[in-house]
Write a protein that binds this DNA or RNA. Structure first.
Length: 419
RNA sequence: GGAGAGAUGGCUGAGCGGUUGAAAGCACCGGUCUUGAAAACCGGCAAAGGGGCAACUCUUUCCUGGGUUCGAAUCCCAGUCUCUCCGCCA
């Protein structure tokens, strides 16, 4: 969420910055509401002052007047709240402003490749897709998931289940030991307030799975990514400067309705309602966001290097970025069956956008209270890593060679083949 | 499910109708002292919002929402959350 004070300073510039994201915002209304809001505040405060003085004077002759003022104040508060609510609705639906480094564009076609690494595998046969491989091994079962649950779910069985677990553990260990992240095993449900903090609510409610608890308390949602719950660790806090940066890693299932993507990637496990992901979150001083983004992206890339998978890194254009991001790198892994790169990680700096929503702050050297910077990135998507390994390490007979770094996590298994 | 206790500033923790935005301690920042550090001593230190170019100033805030009162952290009602004990489940 944007800071109204900042917007007010240079309203035209704010408008211009958001043009890059091609969003539909009623700027005139925003400006108008802000002015009205402040008018009401001023009126209210002057009455409050008057009332306070009567109370201090303890002059009985003025007590009845004080009562009248109270009524007037109530009216003003009512009116002011209505305006404030309208203002907040508009404000909470405005996305973050792209950083100046971000290329301007409309969609993924305008993203710019900044790095390419690894050798594409050469096959003397036609490479199969991950679902063909998994099904013929008898270790990916989509039909069974349809029977028990519905579409866009999968049963991962046997050695592929072990592989999935190995991938997750390998990534966690790397980030914890080598990259200095603290491991967290978080709740998989988040309150509506938490979902608001990272920007999933109110705008993207339709993408979320809501859980009904019996008690009439606030709403709960299955987390669409561990980013939500990890970032909100600092919600409503003023963090000690000495404890920053905070770096968290978690491996969790993620749940997404994927509304609006019907018909896309319907085959296989590229796009599922439930998938595992190892997530990285950093909480940093606000001026260190971009440095941390480079660091975080390198942590994600590290995994692909160790797994010896070919990939490229792209910087997302303004139109393709997520709601809360100021700058995003996607890392895409090579998928032989599709003959193209597919997203396996997305690392974003959200500047202070989420911090304002969460009220997450710190005190700097000068004892000023500032909003923190927040970053999140996949390190990596486990399901898609599984896919990438299946496809890139496949053999002519349909077996899969296990990447060297994963073998210690799989009882030194070197090859996955039909039992 | 039954019975209690509680929710106060970055943290711990007093206050229980009228300069209390809130004692004290810790933490933090500045200074004195010291060869340097520590200790000791002195001073500063809540947040949000409004007005002002600024110095500054005003308002709100002691879990949330109502109520009583000229006046509420303090009294009343409702709610949320946390803790302890008993039961239940693993």
């Amino acid at each position: 969420m944007h800071n109204l004070k900042e917007i007010r300073k240079d309203f035209e510039n704010f408008k211009k910055c958001l043009e890059k994201r091609s969003v539909d915002v009623d700027f005139d209304k925003l400006k108008d509401l802000d002015i009205k809001n402040r008018e009401f505040i001023q009126k209210k405060e002057s009455l409050e002052k008057e009332k306070k003085e009567i109370s201090k004077s303890k002059d009985k002759a003025l007590f009845s007047k004080s009562k009248e003022i109270s009524k007037e104040i109530d009216k003003l508060i009512d009116q002011q709240n209505k305006i404030k609510d309208e203002l907040d609705i508009i404000l909470s639906n405005i996305p973050n402003i792209p950083h100046k480094d971000v290329p301007i564009g409309e969609n993924e076609k305008d993203n710019i490749e900044v790095l390419k690494s690894g050798n594409l595998p050469k096959f003397d046969f036609k490479p199969k897709s991950h679902y063909e491989l998994g099904e013929s091994l008898g270790m990916l079962d989509f039909d069974l998931a349809t029977k028990t649950t519905g579409s866009r779910f999968v049963f991962v069985k046997d050695k592929l289940a072990l592989l999935e677990r190995a991938i997750s553990n390998f990534m966690l260990d790397t980030h914890i030991v080598k990259n200095g992240y603290q491991e967290i095993s978080p709740p998989l449900l988040a309150s509506d307030n938490t979902m608001f903090g990272t920007g999933q609510l109110p705008k993207f409610e339709n993408d979320q799975f809501e859980i009904k608890l019996d008690k009439g308390s606030d709403r709960k949602f299955l987390i669409p990514t561990a980013e939500v719950i990890l970032t909100n660790i600092v919600k409503d806090k003023i963090i000690d400067l000495k404890s920053m940066p905070l770096r968290f890693v978690a491996s969790t299932p993620c749940f997404r309705k994927e509304a609006g993507s019907y018909g896309k990637d319907t085959k296989g496990m590229i796009r599922q309602h439930q998938f595992y992901k190892v997530e990285l979150v950093s909480i940093v001083e606000q001026d260190k966001c971009l440095d941390e983004l480079e660091r975080m992206t390198n942590c994600a890339i590290d995994i692909l290097d160790l797994l010896e998978l070919p990939y490229r890194k792209v910087i997302l254009c303004s139109g393709d970025m997520g709601f809360s991001a100021e700058k995003t790198y996607d890392i895409e892994v090579w998928l032989p069956s599709e003959n193209k790169y597919r997203e396996i990680s997305s690392c974003s700096s959200c500047s202070t956008f989420q911090a304002v929503r969460m009220k997450a702050r710190y005190k700097n050297q000068n004892n000023e209270t500032l909003y923190v910077g927040t970053l999140n990135g996949s390190g990596l998507a486990v399901g898609r890593t599984l896919i990438a390994i299946l496809e890139n390490y496949q053999q002519k007979d349909g077996s899969i060679t296990v990447p060297k770094v994963l073998r210690p996590y799989m009882n030194n298994l070197e090859r996955i083949s039909v039992n």
